[in-house]
Design a protein around this nucleic acid. Sequence first.
DNA 1: AAATGCTCCAACCGCGTACAG
DNA 2: TCTGTACGCGGTTGGAGCATT
Length: 337
Amino acid sequence: MGRAPCCEKVGLKKGRWTKEEDEILARYIKEQGEGSWRSLPKNAGLLRCGKSCRLRWINYLRADLKRGNISEEEEEMIIKLHATLGNRWSLIAGHLPGRTDNEIKNYWNSHLRRRAADFCDGVVVNVDLSKLPGGGKRRGGRVSRGVMAAAKAGKEKKVKEKEKAKGKSKVAEAEQQQQHEQVKEDDDMAVSTPSSHSQPCATAQSEEQAQASASGLTSDDGPEEDPLALSEEMMSALLGPGSPKLEVGPDGWCMDSDSGPSVVVDSDSGPTGDVAQELGDKAIMDWDLMGLDISTAGDMWDPLVWDYADMDVVVPGGGHQQPQEEVMSDLFFLDYI
DNA sequence: AAATGCTCCAACCGCGTACAG
DNA sequence: TCTGTACGCGGTTGGAGCATT
């Protein structure tokens, strides 16, 4: 079965978008809402592929996009989230309001990848989480039409409200804040119902959520909830006070934690004294999230595979700890399970 | 000032998945 | 259940702009 082209490509324009095209697309989406990307170019009078329109909207024209450079806080979030989620840019972007997956991916590839590569010369703690529920597999695919309808309704409502609020200068900021809070609420829900990783939570889905889901802003919530999405507790463990902090050693990076015993890998000389002195010896926790299978949620924790060798863990104040036990205690999301 | 190399980012491409008929 | 379609995602590419020689 041959794959049908996403659109009729003959006569369609490619390459950079002009200001006029941007205006047409933005105006059309403002009036009609997102969705129906395939028919959008024709209806809007654009000589573009629907995919191209969607991408342009998501990555450039959306009002809630944050402009400017990635801040240090955002960079740290990206690093931490990438360490956990891998190249799942849309999931990472879902936790960085106003940033797109494309932007984060580009930033990673241009600014962070090389630094991370240095990191990889060290010992790798390769946690095979293949029995985690759900994740690993790509979560592409279309949004249900019900969600699309809700999204459209939400969009229309939002447009009306926006028009009401015309004249107020902080509309974009407010929307961004709203979106940020919505993400938080979603995560809260994930915590309160751990089993909801595999269950839709349709009743709680608001129009905002539907819209966000339909627009791909937060693919990890609502009916399209990604089972590997990070819950609020996971996020706070990752990013909140007491979370593992990234520290840079003389010849690479090191993920350290100031909230408890550090995981320090000294691959050459074995156990040594002060944790801080060991930061230059490069440690990495490379969580292998590939091949996760939702069908094995029931027995997800027993077969955790720890794929590392010759690792010793130094506990501040002296003594050693079983590496596996230590690493387990340091894995933020295992603590509360 | 010109040539060359490098970086960064917008956009494209193909695949995987969900969904409707 | 099967098939075709629509969409979202991540990998890749092209080229504009900057830096270096």
